[in-house]
Simulated scan of single mutants.
Amino acid sequence: MPRSAILEAALRLLPPDSTPEGIRLRREKAADQARRAEAAEASFIDRLSGANIGLLRERELKERARAALDAGQNDVIRLTPDALLSRPTLICGETYNWIEYKNTFGFRSSPYVASKNKAQFRKYASTFGPGMVVYKPGFETNHVQIEGVRCFREAEVC
């Protein structure tokens, strides 16, 4: 294991730096991670779109919902997976209606994140039908066991 990885792992065990400088650095790091995650998601969705898979992106779904609400429609679906497929689409041997992309590793042992994500996936499956969650680096086996939801590594889908 490279020294930098060992050092980074050891530094994560330290209590957070509560000084103004430490808080600023944590915020900058979080913003940088968010930018990288958005870029990875956009790249993945662009590749799907380039493969002639008809879809609506998350931002398009949000725009449609906002426009419908502005027009006085109250029964608007506000759920926004990263990609809502235009029609049920065969991918990796099964048919899916939506795709959620995660730029993180899917751990069972991260209870807050795992439970939040699972609630999100359940809502998508109950509203849109079967869907897939794509984790860029991978996930633990049996990480998500929800009817109508299947997990993939990005490399498997691409």
Rank of each mutant, 00 (worst) to 15 (best):
P2R: 14
P2T: 10
R3M: 11
A5S: 07
A5G: 02
I6T: 14
L7A: 14
L7Y: 12
E8L: 09
A9P: 04
A9L: 10
A9R: 14
A10K: 13
L11E: 12
L11T: 05
L11F: 09
R12C: 11
R12A: 11
P16I: 01
D17M: 04
S18M: 14
T19C: 00
P20L: 03
P20I: 09
E21P: 00
I23T: 13
R24L: 14
R24N: 11
R24A: 13
L25S: 08
E28K: 11
A30N: 11
A30V: 08
A31F: 13
A31Q: 15
D32Q: 12
A34N: 15
R36G: 10
R36N: 15
A37R: 02
A37P: 08
A39Q: 11
A39Y: 07
A39I: 10
A40H: 02
S43G: 08
F44S: 00
D46R: 13
L48R: 00
G50T: 07
A51H: 10
N52T: 13
N52F: 14
I53G: 02
L55N: 05
L55A: 01
L56W: 11
L56H: 11
R57E: 10
E58F: 03
E58H: 01
E58C: 08
L61E: 02
E63Q: 15
R66S: 14
A67Y: 00
A68H: 03
L69D: 00
D70C: 07
G72L: 09
Q73T: 09
Q73H: 13
D75P: 08
I77W: 01
I77D: 12
R78M: 12
L79E: 08
T80F: 06
L84T: 03
L84P: 03
R87G: 08
P88L: 12
P88M: 04
P88W: 09
T89N: 06
T89M: 07
T89K: 01
G93P: 07
G93C: 05
G93E: 12
E94H: 13
E94S: 13
T95R: 11
T95I: 07
Y96H: 10
Y96E: 03
N97I: 02
N97D: 02
W98L: 00
I99C: 03
E100F: 05
E100L: 04
K102M: 03
T104G: 01
F105A: 02
F105P: 04
F105D: 02
R108W: 09
S109D: 11
S109W: 05
P111F: 10
P111C: 04
V113E: 15
A114S: 09
S115H: 07
S115W: 04
N117C: 07
N117E: 13
F121R: 01
F121K: 03
R122T: 06
R122V: 12
Y124C: 06
Y124H: 10
Y124G: 00
A125E: 02
A125W: 02
S126I: 05
F128H: 02
G129K: 04
M132F: 00
K136C: 04
K136V: 07
P137T: 02
P137A: 01
G138N: 03
F139M: 00
E140W: 02
T141A: 12
H143N: 10
H143Q: 09
V144R: 00
V144M: 04
Q145M: 12
I146V: 13
I146L: 11
I146M: 03
V149L: 05
R150K: 15
C151P: 04
A155E: 14
E156H: 06
V157K: 08
